[in-house]
Nucleic acid binder design. Structure first.
Lengths: 229, 229
DNA sequence: AAAAATAAATAAACGCCGTATATTTACAGC
DNA sequence: GCTGTAAATATACGGCGTTTATTTATTTTT
């Protein structure tokens, strides 16, 4: 067979490849993703994909960036749905949105925070902008609490000097907040991530409280620990 | 080439396969594990492995069980190194041992708690005994605290009925403790897991406090939240 | 001791995969 | 209308898990 006319093809193949990849991931799981499978779906030969992505990992990176953007949109929307003077409400809204997004898009969640692709490691520099933005919603609320002296983190461990340059880099994409707010955000992120990742992987429900109850309890504990009054 | 004499072979190939697998994982990472690579290392043909493991996933399961056993040994040893009347000390020792084991054996940690093998999902029934035992150290300390009315978890969400049968199954391998103790243990597990998994994946240091400081802070917070007085 | 049965290895092959190379062809600009 | 480029195909390579058939070492039975 020869190359078909462009008018018979997908108008923008780059986007079609990503869409097909997401469909495949949703249906067969991230580990089953393969360029050849995408090509089959699109009735294209596999090497044709290399005109749009230099290799499989580059495609995965593009998918991750898209997922981060979707996740960040959800985080920011949740924050902005609560009035800016209700900081506790904003913190809770962000926390709820976190789990909701993860349960709605478990494959995307695992693509970002897990390591479902064999041998793939996300290139930090490419992913950083969308990743930093997704965390910035939480950081912004914590920083606002800090500004009004309501952030209870006086005894929080200091950031080592060698990490301060990378913090400056984070600021470029995440916003100009205090490094303490970012540090606390990372810890809170680790806590919600701990529960949600176990829940999504199916390791939570069999032998403990259900995910919803546990998550609510954990969010209350976070509020009590980090917000004064 | 024909089949070589057994005297020239490894005496117990089953164990040799697992050892070679661990060496390969340590050197090339879990995602790069392959039966053919193991066979090459052992100067064996790949199908020969099928005499000892029905397929690749079965080998991975065996590796996971070994890792859980090593992890559980470390947890139990840490607990028993502190006198039984010093429950807070035991809790802290278990927490420290958790991170130490994870940092000492990052590949084993990711093999257990991550999803580094494409398409592999651990069969619960096979892994449960060693997994339940590894968590039992923490559960036993929490239950001892509960017995002396020092466990601060009165408001902990209850376990839904549909999970109680699987709790009974857990008891078979993890020991006869109250379900509240197990529930709290799962939450604490999620919290330390959240930090350690981020640290091992390299997502923690660049933009926040170092793992050691953060972990110490988190352990103190856990103690304060769950232990009375 | 010889023969039969069993177990454990090899050899070969199938259908996947990512990817590199060379080739063809549709399309755009002159 | 010709030419250069970009985008597709065709082909191929090596690696993977796994299956099948076959060979052979070892064990068991007679």
């Amino acid at each position: 067979m020869v190359r078909p006319k462009r008018t018979k093809q997908h108008p923008n193949l780059q986007e079609a490849i990503k869409e097909t990849a997401w469909e495949w991931i949703a249906q067969h799981g991230a580990p089953a993703l393969s360029l050849r499978a995408i090509a089959r779906e699109l009735k294209i030969t596999a090497p044709a994909i290399y005109n749009y992505f230099p290799n499989r990992d580059a495609l995965v990176t593009a998918l991750i960036i898209d997922a981060y953007t979707s996740f960040g949109d959800s985080q920011i929307a949740a924050r902005d749905a609560v009035p800016a003077d209700n900081l506790t409400g904003r913190l809770m809204a962000i926390g709820l949105a976190y789990r909701n997004w993860a349960l709605t898009h478990p494959q995307r969640y695992q693509l970002i925070f897990g390591t479902p692709i064999p041998g793939y490691e996300a290139p930090l520099m490419e992913v950083l902008p969308s990743a930093a933005r997704s965390l910035s919603a939480l950081v912004s609320v914590l920083d606002a609490l800090r500004v009004v002296s309501k952030l209870n983190a006086e005894e929080f461990p200091a950031v080592k000097k060698e990490f301060k340059t990378s913090f400056e880099m984070w600021k470029t994409y995440g916003g100009n907040y205090d490094i303490l707010s970012l540090s606390v955000a990372v810890l809170i992120w680790a806590r919600v991530h701990g529960i949600v990742s176990l829940e999504i992987a199916g390791n939570l429900p069999p032998f403990g409280t259900d995910g919803n109850g546990l998550y609510t309890y954990e969010m209350a504990a976070i509020e009590k620990q980090f917000i004064k009054e």
